[in-house]
Structures are given as structure tokens and as C-alpha cells.
């Protein structure tokens, strides 16, 4: 007769786990400030409680070698880079035609990004854009995911500015999202310029209609020239708007990533302060999801921008 099991455990084990879980939950709740307010009489040892976080927007410098400040976010970014590159190297060093488990997982992730690029940008363009898009996705994603590891926001060191966290998720420093946004912007514009030539700039500054209107008027044909002049002026105006919107993309990309990541980090710090243990776990799950979504949004938007910009529009673009 088969043993009855629930969630893959036999009943005694399951009950034991639930009890431990409940005890942790109660202790965690009681040790936080919420518990202290609700049960004023209960006193727990001070090592159980988490100090109140003081989130700051600028990243803190941890070291100053050669007068150049190394911030905690920079260290985190390096860790991400080492992790991603190291993992990729370990897997691709001996690639097999019939993949093992790790290689299959790697190929699944990269292949998914590759397919995304090809679906949006077409087969040949997708292949060209894929390295940039994939790098953005992996960098943003792993920055967010590795920031959830224990050690981030908990290890402190003495620095010039006082007690400072050694590690802080890299995207919570606005310099990284801004750098990514600038790279994305330059990538889009340069690719479009190379693809469409100087005519690409006409999208931002189209004076053809305006000039031909002026010519008509100078020849004395006022009735034909005036509407052309007006459409020309409108074209110039929409071109300016177009240019402005491209510039605004930098800001929106930066702030979206920075805001989401910083908010997530603050949320985690605050939940860890309020209810240190069990109840904070769902928020980690949430942050895992948000990291994925932000990576997808950043990479996906860049992909869409580049696809739109690199496709010749002709006249119907208005």
C-alpha cells in the first residue's frame, strides 16, 4: 500500500516543517516593530531585530583606490559581469551538439532572446541586433536577480562616509540605467544612420516641402505656394517633436529601470525591517518577477526602437 503523501513529503515531515515555519513566523513578527507595537510586553533579544534602513539614492563609495571612488553598485555590477561571463564561458567552453542539462538551459535562455529578436526585427536584422539586445537583457536581469542574494544590503564596511553597505544592486544607482539608456540611444541612432544614410535625419528635420513652398511664392504663385508653406512648417514642427521624443526615451528608460529597482530594493529593506523573516519571502518572489519584467522591457523597447528606426518609412511615416 502506497504511503499517503502531500507536497512530496510524508505527513510527519510536513507537520514538522509547518511547525518550524509557524514558529519562525511568530518570532519574526514579534521581533519586528509591528509586533513590538501590538505586543508591548514581549521583549526579545536585540540580535533578532533588524536596524531601521536609511535608503539613500546616490550610491555610496566603498573604497577610494587612486582617488577614484568605487561604489557598492559598481562592485555589484562587476559581480554580475563575472557571474554571467563565467557561467557562459563554463558552458560554451565545451559545447556539444547534443546538449547536457546546463547547456540546454543556457541555450534555452539565449535561444529565447534570439527568437524574440528575430520575431520583432526579422531574420537577418534580428541576428544583427541580437547581441546588443541579449546583453542588455542579461545585464539588467542578472543585476536584479543577483541583488536578491543574501549579502546584498546586509554586509557593511567602514568607509570614509561612515558605515556603508558593501553590496547594493547595480541598477539602484542611476548611473547604470542612464548608461544603458545612452548606449541604447546611440545604438539605435547609429544603426539607423548607417542603414538609411543621411536621409534618416530627414525624420527630424524635413524642410523639403517648406522650401518648395517658398519657391512657389517667389515665383508669384501665391495660391499654390501658401498651403505648401504651411505643410512644410508642420513637417518641421513634427520633426522637432520626433527628435524630442527620441531624447525623452533616454529619460524614460533610465527612470523606469532606476525607479523600479530602487523601489524594489527599498521595499525589501523595509519588509526586512518590519517582519524580518518569513513574511518578507513573497516580496523576494515579487522582485524576481520585477527583475525579469524590467530586463524584458528595457531590451524589448530597445529592440522595437531599433526595428522602427532601421526600417525605411518613406512618405507614409507621417
Amino acid at each position: 500500500m502506497p504511503k499517503r503523501r502531500l507536497l512530496g513529503c510524508s505527513f510527519p515531515v510536513l507537520i514538522g516543517i509547518s511547525v518550524v515555519f509557524l514558529v519562525l513566523l511568530v518570532v519574526s513578527f514579534a521581533s519586528g516593530p509591528l509586533g513590538a507595537i501590538m505586543f508591548p510586553g514581549v521583549e526579545l533579544p536585540s540580535w533578532l531585530s533588524v536596524p531601521q534602513p536609511e535608503p539613500k539614492l546616490p550610491a555610496e563609495a566603498v573604497f577610494h583606490p587612486f582617488g577614484f571612488p568605487i561604489t557598492n553598485t559598481m562592485i555589484a555590477a562587476w559581480i554580475t559581469m563575472i557571474f554571467v561571463v563565467g557561467l557562459s564561458y563554463a558552458i560554451t567552453r565545451r559545447m556539444k551538439l547534443v546538449p547536457g542539462r546546463l547547456q540546454a538551459a543556457f541555450e534555452f535562455l539565449i535561444g529565447w532572446l534570439y527568437d524574440l529578436c528575430r520575431e520583432v526585427a526579422g531574420n537577418t536584422d534580428g541576428r544583427k541586433f541580437f547581441p546588443m539586445i541579449a546583453t542588455i537583457f542579461l545585464f539588467v536581469g542578472f543585476n536584479a536577480w543577483l541583488g536578491l542574494l543574501p549579502g546584498f544590503g546586509s554586509i557593511t564596511v567602514h568607509a570614509a562616509e561612515g558605515e556603508v553597505h558593501l553590496l547594493r544592486p547595480a541598477s539602484t544607482d542611476i548611473n547604470l540605467p542612464l548608461a544603458l539608456a545612452l548606449i541604447s540611444f546611440v545604438f539605435v541612432e547609429v544603426t539607423a544612420l548607417r542603414r538609411l544614410g543621411i536621409g534618416y535625419l530627414r525624420k527630424f528635420f524635413d524642410v523639403r516641402e517648406f522650401v518648395s513652398g517658398l519657391r512657389q511664392i517667389s515665383k508669384g504663385r501665391l495660391k499654390a505656394g501658401l498651403p505648401q508653406l504651411l505643410t512644410g512648417a508642420l513637417n518641421i514642427f513634427t520633426g522637432l517633436l520626433e527628435g524630442f521624443s527620441e531624447l525623452v526615451r533616454i529619460v524614460s528608460l533610465t527612470i523606469r529601470l532606476f525607479g523600479n529597482m530602487t523601489a524594489g530594493e527599498v521595499l525589501l529593506l523595509v519588509t526586512a525591517f518590519l517582519v524580518p523573516w518569513v513574511l518578507a519571502v513573497p516580496f523576494y518572489g515579487l522582485e524576481l518577477l520585477i527583475g525579469y519584467i524590467q530586463a524584458l522591457i528595457f531590451a524589448g523597447l530597445t529592440l522595437i526602437f531599433i526595428t522602427f528606426a532601421a526600417t525605411p518609412h518613406g512618405e507614409e511615416a507621417h
Binding site: 550610491a59 543556457f106 541555450e107
Partner: peptide, 30 residues
């Protein structure tokens, strides 16, 4: 906000390095 030109440039360089290395060890073999 903490925008810092040297940090910004460093992050751009970081991304460049990451791009180059990943191109070599991930995208090309893939």
C-alpha cells in the same frame, strides 16, 4: 539622484566589456 559622470563612463565601459566578453563566450558559440 546621484548622477556622476565618472561613474556613468565607468558603467558604459562595464557594459562594453560585458558585451565584448559575452559576444565571445556566449553569442558566438551559440
Amino acid at each position: 539622484l546621484g548622477i556622476n559622470p565618472s561613474m556613468l563612463i565607468a558603467q558604459v565601459i562595464n557594459f562594453g566589456i560585458l558585451f565584448g566578453l559575452l559576444y565571445l563566450v556566449a553569442y558566438k558559440p551559440f
